[in-house]
């Protein structure tokens, strides 16, 4: 190993260490503050000591945190599952057939990225009210069931699908529906899983639409977090505890599936 390479490697390590600390520190600080004793909340010591769960107790006392986490999980899982299904069907259509209006319809999907949320939220709210879906988790899930990102990513993926497998299946006279589920899906399962994780995390962190739909009580955990941020001063200890709880499931998922998650997000960025 030449000194040049070694120098490069050391530089690389230094740079990455600095960046990692910068990125991870606020998250660490969040959990550290939440674990301090209530009187120590303003302390600047790097390690919280003595450790205390009082803040978490306060967080649980003020919000039905278990129920919030459960609700958020339901919303996240159902949203992701729905988005995967809808996206898969649409991507299959784009990738498997040529048909009139194909390009126009494709642009329709891309176009949704440019529509500001603020421009559509009020008509959607009114529609939800008319459908009787306000104050329900369904009202949070249904309007977001078509994920343009999901459609586009899956289409890219399906574009590279080996033709021979399909030809063979079609020769057998199987229907397109059959082909989709018995031939295509098993092969792209990793991509589906990656996309699914990405969608779950995005839905978990969703905030504005749930805030519009769920007014009575703080049904999802992001809203529960809000209830601690009042004008009469923030209650920092329990606030950090609730924030920590709000992020915890995602982080747990991350620790377990880190490689896949990163890959999923990064792939969404590569063309």
């Amino acid at each position: 190993m030449t000194t040049d390479t070694r120098l490069r490697r050391i530089t690389g390590h230094v740079v990455l260490t600095v960046l990692s600390i910068a990125c991870a520190f606020p998250i660490y600080w969040l959990y550290a503050t939440s674990l301090r004793a209530p009187g120590d909340v303003h302390s600047l010591t790097i390690l919280p000591w003595p450790l205390s769960t009082a803040n978490y107790a306060a967080a649980f006392a003020n919000n039905d945190v278990a129920r919030m986490l459960a609700n958020t999980a339901i919303v996240a899982l159902l949203s992701a599952a729905g988005q995967l299904l809808v996206g898969l069907l649409a991507a299959y259509a784009f990738a498997a057939w040529t048909f009139p209006l194909r390009r126009t319809l494709y642009l329709m999907f891309v176009g949704t990225w440019l529509v500001p949320f603020q421009a559509t939220m009020l008509p959607n709210y009114v529609l939800l009210a008319r459908l009787g879906l306000l104050e329900t988790l369904a009202g949070v899930i249904i309007p977001n069931l078509c994920s343009a990102l999901g459609v586009l990513l899956l289409r890219e993926h399906l574009a590279g699908f080996p033709k021979e497998l399909l030809d063979a299946a079609r020769m057998d006279g199987r229907s397109s529906w059959n082909i989709l589920w018995t031939v295509v899906v098993p092969v792209i399962r990793p991509a589906l899983a990656a996309l699914g994780i990405l969608l779950v995390i995005t839905a978990w962190n969703e905030y504005f639409w749930p805030a519009m739909v769920l007014q009575r009580g703080n049904a999802v955990v992001q809203l529960g977090l809000r209830s601690f941020m009042g004008t009469e001063g923030n209650d920092w200890g329990p606030l950090m505890a609730t924030a920590g709880l709000a992020c915890l499931p995602v982080f747990v998922l991350y620790l377990v599936l880190q490689r896949h998650i990163v890959q999923a997000f990064v792939r969404s960025g590569l063309k």
Partner: peptide, 13 residues
């Protein structure tokens, strides 16, 4: 893992 973590933090948190 460390560098990517902020992306997963909920905006409100």
């Amino acid at each position: 893992a460390l560098v990517f973590a902020p992306m997963l933090v909920a905006p409100v948190a």
